[in-house]
Design a protein around this nucleic acid. Sequence first.
DNA 1: ATGACGCGTCATACGCGA
Length: 257
Amino acid sequence: MKIVTFNVNGVRARMDTLIEWLKDTNPDVVALQEIKIQDVDFPRTIFEKLGYNCYLNGQKSFNGVAILTKGEAKLSSKVLPGNNDDQQARFIEVYYKRKRFMCIYLPNGNPKDTEKFVYKLEWMDRLVEYCNEALKSEEEIIVLGDFNVIPQYDDCMSPKQWAKDALFDSEVRTKFHYLLNLGYLDAIRILDNSNSIYTQWDYRDRAWEENNGVRIDHILLSPTAADNLEDSWIESTLRSHAKPSDHVPVWVLLGDK
DNA sequence: ATGACGCGTCATACGCGA
């Protein structure tokens, strides 16, 4: 099963790219973030013609997540429990072929001296709690999306540049590592411990040309899912195509066992 | 400290992202 996560930075702006890319790569499960569109306006029929069912948690202008599956899945939640006042569309979960997929768009959290950072920490606490509960089922769980977390020094080109940023904050990194300590595995790092492998490059300051990137889009696997890991990779070439997102797709290939 | 680039919006400036 080919599984991929991709922060598209606006689904409407990325339709040409997405159509060509889906035809070329033919994933079974696609997790999208920052679709920046209401469910009612989502170009559902275009994806359906390509063979995908669409499960949406959209929002006007900002945020918004979706999961596309080849054939039918079962929508299980659009809510990350723990805060009834949370109005931001950042979570959707489906079951597909006996696997549980959580697509997340974790808050950015900048600037750190504002409520945005408090919201990020609170959101991460809820994610840790939810992912801990989920493990009790021994299901195959795939948590994937834009985590807005640089886990380690090797996950950015210039740690100094990020020292005071919400993406590299020590408390944020600690909370990310809680997920690993629960038993989830970082699918890219299982197979590749090199540096200079990134998933996002700023549009500004020639960041792509200079490979000044960050690895913030992740796929975490429960131990039972990791048992079936056959491959993982970052599709960085997409960043040099015309009209790119600032993020690129991150893939895992899971055997069916 | 600021702005840079791109997206979306009750657009032709501004909020937001990372």
